[in-house]
Amino acid sequence: MAKVTIDGIEIEVADGTTILQAARQIGGEIVPPAMCYYSTLKNSGGKCRACLVKVAAGSAKDPRPMPKLVPSCITTVQDGMVVENITNPTVLETRKGVVEFLLLNHPLDCPICDQAGECDLQNFAYNHGVSKTRYEEERRTFEQHDIGDKIKLHMNRCILCYRCTYVADQLTDNRVHGVLNRGDHAEISTYIEKAIDNEFSGNMIDVCPVGALTDKTFRFKQRVWFTKPLDAHRDCPKCSGKVVLWTKGNDVLRVTARKDQYNEVKEFICNECRYDHKDMNDWVIEGPRHIERGSVISQNHYEKIDLVKLKADVERQLKFQEGKRLNEANNTPA
């Protein structure tokens, strides 16, 4: 066991835990953001630099601070380690820089992007970034590609987190796509388009933190916040069959795996569940999906409407409208 202090909060965690995981055990504001790290994918992390934190004391044995900011997602804790995240101005300043770097070449097409509303980059930029960019040059652009017949790759939006390549490496039977070229021209690609036809390729869509990989069966159908997520399951011989149905009325618009509060899928689902069962009758509905954070859905908590508060809100609104009318009446010259 190792005792670590993160932003003044002490916690005891198992040896070998990363700083990020320790912070997630505490929860709340002090959890560093993560754009590339994915707990269910091995070797992920360390790339986006969004989760950089300051280690003010390395360990009880060697209390010297670490000279550079360290990526919390891959740095394991030591007993007696003192970590500064949101209490350290340098960390926050660096994070602002990372937001700016990630947004340099990222198109501002949120209004037409299917990921908008549940996009990690949106949340990250909103929480940690600044509202203006200092970048005046042209953005680098790529052609859009199809990866298989169900997935659209919109490379302009990609932040090269490498998560989808790890999915290809670790979930599917053979590696079908990877990264080509280098620098800001690096792109996720497959040599032969439409060559990806394995049972779990659809999970690339779920792990993508931005709208670079989108579901072609859902593209442009509906904004996320107009759909209702429902927990559902079915007997599936290939995967756990536990999914979230994103519905409108009785129509199932999209099927995804279940994500936890850090937008991570713990149980990946197969392509059959994802694409071929868009019918309520195929599923056993468990009830509304509770989404705590990471999605715009979490903002209105539709699954438990507070009727008393709603009534008060409506009354307040009515009163306000009435007041406006009264004023107008008073101000109208006779």
Partner: peptide, 16 residues
């Protein structure tokens, strides 16, 4: 030209 494109500050910053 030589940045590998793995981590964001170098990938985007060098070009900028």
């Amino acid at each position: 030209h030589e940045s590998c494109g793995q981590c964001s500050p170098c990938r985007e910053g060098t070009g900028w």
